[in-house]
Design a binder for these strands. Structure first.
Length: 772
RNA sequence: GGGCUCGUGGUCCAGGUCGGUUAUGACGUCGCCCUUACACGGCGAAAAUCCGGGGUUCAAAUCCCCGCGGGCCCA
């Protein structure tokens, strides 16, 4: 009997053929029915090469969700999208072409961004296809498409009309040389030498004074309170007292706050709008009213009195002189200060309040908490990230950005009276480049308009993904069938952003939750447990790894190494060595391919034993698959296949399967059981390693794809775990005995079979060549 | 600074809710072995202060407290 599988090892090259087979047969196409299972797939962001290997692992697992659901009999809708809005591509483009966004023609800059995205996107699509993602690539979407941006704008217009959007002044990082708000990502820190000025502040109605140290004395005019550490006994007596600010003579309260460090300066800190990020946090937390001391031109404003019009640095020099002249200075120290610097203009940034659009969210918090409670989280513990975040929300969401590559805010303003005009939803608008859709201002009848130049925060786009994939506003019938989606799979680090914003936006628009389940994956770290980054040089490029080891190896590594929800380490060697298991599976199948497939057989005791263990495995796998935790089935299947089925059962029944010294009936029992076990293993493993299982399934059992089969159900057989232990121990004993006697495994030996193993006597005798 | 989370052989990981056998398995290392699927294999061996300290208990990797270290998010 020759094996029908002739190659001696699994060849990852076969994956390409199988991919084509799936594509040709269109086995993953989606037509909405009644039992739809919609996956709100995260659209990855093409931010630069290489793509993160942790992300490749992440998408592998999302595909396992799809395949698990499909084999559970669900009609799976698995859309694929690419997220293309936002800052990273702008920075990438500026760097690549050595240009500055604000100094480049907007249309030209957008085109450069678009072509950069196209290149990066191609590689991501290639990786996703190669790792076996069973999504609908033919219809993949982009968040910067006209269709998508129309949705983002329409939802904004809807919320505008409902009064959920407002304009407000809030502090932002500001680079006054470039004249733009900058993101935290664009700030670097430099240790610069600066003066720490110890100033005397009088306590009101006493003759006492306290010393306050500051590197920004020019902001004294914007000082709103003085803080000391609650445990700082030097100041206990002054808590709650009014303090007189030098020069301005303003009265401010002295209060306690844990952020004041006793050992820095005098331990007492003046809180000004805005010296640093801590000031921003304190103004917000203590609900202080801000004073704008620095304007958009980077100069002191009129609240600075005599110092108005000066640059902060000049004002600092002058105010130190004046403080000294008036006897307000105790001493001045030269210190090294960690100063935030704009990455582009290399100047210290200022924190300046700017007018931006906000989406109301504070009043939705309770509703979102309730929705959060209704959604099943996998794993449960990560629901806490959302709940903690909801607890800490204390401002509304700033949604406007002074950037180019994003969805435009669809507003025009009357040139004469500034009245805003928001157009009708259902169309994609570019106000910076298009005429206002109305000809006359509703308020003053003027005919001239100015288009809004700002774009949305990219989360405004990403947060409506469940609406986009369900064709909200585009196809009502489709929408009704697939919304809410079944599951949102995503990474842990964006629960506070993507997951939360999606809940908020979808609730505001539909009044419903966007999905019934959320699946949260941990974070991919390097082999030492450090975050991967290009600058550290520890980033692993997934493409060569997948090409070398094959998608199934990579996927099995991902399933067997990553416990769901926890952070995981990526190690190329580990990935490569996972191949050994696939090799084992391949050779088990190759062995079985030399026996005919028979419909039924009468299992003997050995057969019944492995079938009961198999049934136990089915149960164990179901437990994992039910919560989309692939770690559980991966480990259990490997353990069973390698350490029970191959190592013990196959060895026990080999002679019987060949029919040597056994009756035909006994032989058929073995062959029947072998195939039953293998076909079950293949099905159990199919969601995790779709390629090799498909190949073996086709080669041995059926030409119809394994991914169209129903998952195996447990038969609830009685489990004989004490027998298992005895068999393993007995086999080990025989092998050791032969070894110590320098015998080959095919030599005969005389060892007594324990009583409990009596039912397996004939199989064990033939396996070990035991003498009577 | 705050929140969440993790810390078990050289490496990765199980066990932890609900305290009780000899702490699971894989990778790697070493030794032996061609055995009618597989040398990408088999058998076997060495390898662990279960991060540190304290507490509860007859009994702690597991429960409690305090530290230390890593990671993520927020500030």
């Amino acid at each position: 009997m020759e094996p029908t599988i002739s190659e001696k090892a699994w060849n990852p090259e076969l994956e390409k053929k199988i991919l084509k087979q799936w594509e040709d047969e269109k086995i993953y196409d989606f037509i909405p029915q009644e039992n739809n299972f919609t996956i709100d797939t995260p659209p990855p962001y093409p931010s630069g090469r290489p793509w993160h290997i942790g992300a490749a692992a992440h998408y592998s697992q999302i595909d396992m969700i799809a395949r698990t659901a499909r084999m559970a009999g669900k009609n799976v809708y698995f859309p694929i999208g690419i997220d293309r809005n936002g800052l990273p591509v702008e920075l990438y483009t500026e760097k690549k072409h050595k240009i500055r966004m604000k100094e480049t023609d907007r249309n030209e800059f957008l085109n450069l961004c678009r072509s950069a995205l196209d290149d990066l996107e191609d590689e991501m699509i290639l990786i996703m296809k190669n790792i076996g993602i069973s999504g609908d690539f033919a219809n993949y979407y982009r968040t910067d498409s006209e269709e998508y941006r129309t949705l983002t704008q329409s939802t904004f217009i809807d919320l505008w009309k409902k009064g959920q959007i407002y304009l407000a002044n809030r502090p932002n990082n500001y680079d006054w040389v470039s004249g733009t708000t900058i993101a935290d990502a664009e700030i670097t820190y430099e240790n610069l030498s600066t003066k720490l000025v110890y100033m005397k502040f009088k306590i009101k109605d006493t003759d006492k004074e306290i010393i306050i140290a500051s590197t920004r004395p020019e902001l004294i005019c914007a000082c709103k309170t003085i803080i000391v550490n609650p445990e700082d006994e030097r100041y206990t007596q002054y808590i709650g007292k009014k303090v007189i600010v030098p020069i301005t003579n303003a009265e401010v309260e002295l209060r306690t706050h844990h952020s004041a460090k006793q050992e820095f300066g005098s331990g007492a800190v003046m809180v000004c709008s805005y010296g640093d990020q801590n000031d921003v946090a304190l103004f917000r937390e203590l609900e202080l009213e801000e004073i704008v001391a620095i304007g958009l031109d980077g100069r002191m404003t009129k609240v600075a009195g005599n110092y108005a019009g000066l640059k902060p640095k000049q004002a600092r020099t002058k105010i130190i002189e004046d403080l000294e002249t008036n006897g307000f200075v105790e001493k001045i120290e030269e210190i090294i200060h960690r100063t935030p610097i704009s990455e582009r203009s290399k100047i210290p940034i200022e924190i300046i309040p700017m007018e931006e659009y906000y989406l109301k969210q504070k009043e939705s918090v309770e509703k979102i908490k309730k929705l959060g409670q209704e959604i099943t989280f996998h794993p449960t513990m990560h629901k806490q990230i959302l709940m903690n975040w909801l607890e800490s929300i204390n401002i509304d969401w700033p949604i406007s950005r002074r950037r180019y590559y994003g969805t435009e805010i669809p507003i025009w303003y009357c040139k004469k009276c500034s009245e805003p005009y928001v157009p009708e939803p259902g169309k994609y608008y570019k106000p910076w480049n298009e005429k206002c859709p109305i000809s006359n201002c509703i308020k003053c009848n003027s005919t001239e308009f100015i288009g809004e130049e700002r774009t949305f925060d990219t989360w405004m786009d990403s947060s409506v993904s469940p609406l986009f994939i369900s064709k909200f506003n585009r196809d009502d019938e489709f929408f009704k069938k697939v919304y809410p989606a079944s599951i949102r799979p995503q990474a842990k680090d964006i629960v506070r952003t993507w997951l939360y914003y999606t809940l908020l936006r979808c609730e505001q628009i539909t009044g419903e939750k966007p999905w019934t389940e959320a699946w949260i994956m941990g974070y991919g770290l390097d082999e030492k447990g450090m975050k991967m980054s290009k600058s550290k040089g520890n980033a692993i490029d997934p493409l060569p790894v997948i090409e070398k080891s094959g998608a199934d190896t990579f996927r099995f590594w991902s399933a067997s190494e990553i416990n769901h929800g926890y952070d995981f380490r990526c190690n190329e060697q580990k990935i490569e060595s996972t191949k050994k298991f696939l090799s084992k599976l391949w050779n088990v199948s190759r062995f079985l391919s030399s026996f005919p497939i028979i419909e039924s057989g009468i299992p003997n005791e050995s057969d019944k034993w492995i079938l009961s263990e198999l049934d136990n495995l089915v149960k164990e796998c179901k437990k994992g698959y039910d919560e989309y935790n692939f770690f559980i089935p991966a480990i259990a299947i490997r353990e069973f296949t390698w350490n029970l089925f191959a190592a013990h059962y196959i060895e026990m029944v080999k002679a019987r399967a060949y029919g040597i010294d056994f009756s035909d009936e006994e032989r058929d029992g073995a062959i029947f059981t072998l195939h039953k076990v293998l076909s079950t293993i293949l099905k159990l493993l199919a969601p995790i390693t779709p390629f090799i299982t498909e190949y073996l399934w086709n080669a041995l059992y059926s030409k119809e794809s394994i991914h169209k089969q129903m998952q195996v159900k447990a038969e609830n057989l009685e489990i004989k775990s004490d027998i298992t232990k005895e068999i393993l121990e007995f086999n080990s004993k025989v092998w050791n005995e032969k070894k110590s006697q320098n015998l080959s495994l095919k030599d005969s030996i005389k060892i007594e079979i324990p009583k409990i193993l009596e039912p397996f006597k004939k199989d064990l005798e033939s396996m070990h060549h035991l003498e009577d």
